Computed example of a mutant assay.
Amino acid sequence: MRKVMMTSDKIKSLKAAASLLNSCEMLVVFTVEKEGNRTVLHILADDKKLEYSVIKDQDMLNFLNDLKQQVDHPEDVEEVLMEFKDLK
């Protein structure tokens, strides 16, 4: 499995996540969860894994809303947004 490199740059992370979601043939994991004091978005698709984490919940909400605008299937991001709202 190949891990996609992530940076602290939100724009680069958004582009990487959108690219992975738009180009994948099989989306295996697309979820968000609390890990300690961080909120982590997990994407596993084909042979690639991506993780994006933030400390502030609002930052994850903003990231997911921005991601929804950049993907071919925004309904997938909607499901993760609902899951994220249930974490609180």
Rank of each mutant, 00 (worst) to 15 (best):
E78I: 09
L44S: 14
L67F: 00
Q58T: 15
L27D: 02
L81D: 12
F84T: 15
D46I: 04
L81V: 15
E79G: 09
N37D: 15
K49E: 05
T7A: 11
L20N: 03
K85M: 10
T39Q: 01
V54R: 13
E75Y: 03
V4Q: 10
V28H: 06
D46A: 06
F30S: 02
S23I: 04
D72M: 04
D46H: 05
K3W: 15
N62E: 15
Q58F: 08
K3H: 07
L61Y: 02
K10C: 09
I55D: 12
M1G: 12
V28N: 03
Y52S: 07
S8E: 11
R2F: 10
L50S: 00
E25K: 14
Q58L: 15
E83V: 13
F84A: 11
I11F: 01
L44K: 08
S19V: 06
D57G: 07
V4W: 08
L41H: 13
R38Y: 14
K88H: 06
E79I: 02
H73A: 12
K15P: 10
L50H: 00
V29I: 05
D57P: 01
K49D: 06
R2A: 04
T39G: 04
Y52T: 00
M5D: 05
L14V: 09
L27P: 01
V29T: 15
T7G: 10
L27V: 01
K48H: 05
L44F: 06
V54S: 09
S13Y: 11
L14Q: 09
S13F: 06
Q70A: 03
K3N: 11
M82L: 14
D86P: 11
N65R: 06
Q69F: 13
V32R: 10
K3L: 15
R2E: 03
M5W: 13
K88G: 04
K34N: 12
N37M: 06
D47F: 14
V40A: 04
L41Y: 04
N37Y: 15
N37E: 15
F63M: 07
K15T: 09
V54P: 06
K85A: 10
A16W: 05
I55Y: 14
K68T: 07
K85R: 14
K68H: 02
M60D: 12
L27H: 02
K12V: 08
G36S: 05
D76Q: 05
D66C: 07
E51S: 01
R2M: 06
H73I: 00
D9Q: 00
Q70D: 12
K34M: 01
A45H: 05
M1C: 00
F63H: 06
E78Q: 07
D9G: 02
E51G: 11
M6Y: 13
A17S: 07
V77D: 11
S19Y: 08
T39N: 04
L67P: 04
V77C: 07
E75W: 02
L20D: 06
D46V: 03
D86A: 12
Q69S: 08
C24R: 01
K15R: 14
E83S: 12
D47G: 05
